[in-house]
Design a protein around this nucleic acid. Structure first.
Lengths: 195, 195
DNA sequence: TCTAATACATACCAATTAGTATGTTTATGC
DNA sequence: GCATAAACATACTAATTGGTATGTATTAGA
């Protein structure tokens, strides 16, 4: 990677962390410059505007991260129910970068920007749909293997599961990680009713 | 109500609507002044700061609204499962003021402000806990009436239900109200497994 | 090695932010 | 009706915002 590409990546990475903790609008460009030690000239050389940087951040940082943690663990699932549960559990309590207090980066961005910026909304919908599809497919595989009842509607269930995750991430921002435990216990109950 | 009290109430009401659509930080005081036709002098006569107004808004507008739509419908529930379902359904599709695109006012505020402002967080936790308690109590009543299986953990279930609502409200901001239907169908499934 | 584009640096700008200082009007109790 | 405080109005401020104008290094290809 060229030096310039490294600078660009570093800006995206640090901005991602700041925005995760503070929100997109509350994170000023000057704030980013101060923590990256990059000058304004460099920033606006790599990105036409703050929004262009934000979009790049979604596609180049958020998307790969979500794919690795939310889609990959489901590929070729041999034990769909437990793998879905494990994936959600891992997201909640096994990724050190993600803190209950700050929620989930993708959910945060949807909350803040979906109603305000159409291009952000579209980019974030793609993320959500990809995760939801991966879950639905996993459930379908489970049905083929007779591990999941055939009357389970995989798309409805996937929607329900994604909503639950998004919601507990929101709740965790207010209540702390303590609320993850009852949620996970009940998620397990819900999932086991599918078999 | 005195004229001054009316002014105060009007500021809170209009600010609530603006903040619901734009977010708290994105709604400037000047923006509020422009839509309320109130002058800066009047605003700062009634509220020491923007944050004091925001807190008053939670306690005097958000709280009563949430109580009426989220707690009252559950009081003396004779048919707990269907009443819980009906309450969630009403929240999602029967309150004209709430638009899928803009989500739920309380959830929005938690997302944006819980990590940033401790006093906002506390006020919003009170709201959430009250709703969760009301749902848990309703489930307990259902257990006493033999309408709900005694092995259902009411607190876990209440947490799971609240999380689901919060999450689908988030999803709706990105995807629109179309995602409410699959969610509600699966919620009904989940709830019926309790009886 | 020279050139020219790439990659960055500095200084600025107009608009907006929450908040204040200093008024003037309006209502209320006596 | 009159004093007094409550209720509002206007003009300002210092800080911050995203973005630009105009520079200077650095690097890669001919």
């Amino acid at each position: 990677m060229s030096k310039a590409a490294e600078t660009r990546q570093m800006i995206l990475q640090k901005s991602f962390e700041l925005i995760y903790r503070q929100g997109y609008q509350a994170t000023s460009i000057d704030n980013i410059l101060a923590t990256t030690q990059v000058t304004k000239g460099a920033f606006f050389y790599h990105f036409k505007s703050k929004d262009e940087m934000g979009l790049a951040l979604i596609n180049e940082v958020l998307y790969p991260g979500m794919y690795a943690n939310m889609v990959t663990p489901l590929i070729d699932a041999r034990d769909p129910i437990n793998q879905i549960y494990a994936m959600v559990r891992n997201l909640l309590i096994k990724i050190p970068f993600l803190r209950a207090k700050y929620g989930c980066p993708a959910i945060n961005l949807i909350e803040e920007l979906a109603p305000l910026k159409e291009d952000f909304r579209k980019a974030l919908v793609r993320l959500t749909e990809q995760w939801q599809d991966a879950i639905a497919q996993t459930i379908e595989h489970g049905k083929e293997d007779n591990q999941i009842r055939i009357d389970v509607n995989s798309k409805h269930a996937a929607c329900f599961i994604v909503a639950g995750y998004a919601g507990i991430r929101n709740m965790g921002k207010a209540m702390g990680s303590a609320c993850y435990t009852p949620y996970l216990l009940e998620l397990k109950n819900y999932l086991q009713l599918m078999e």
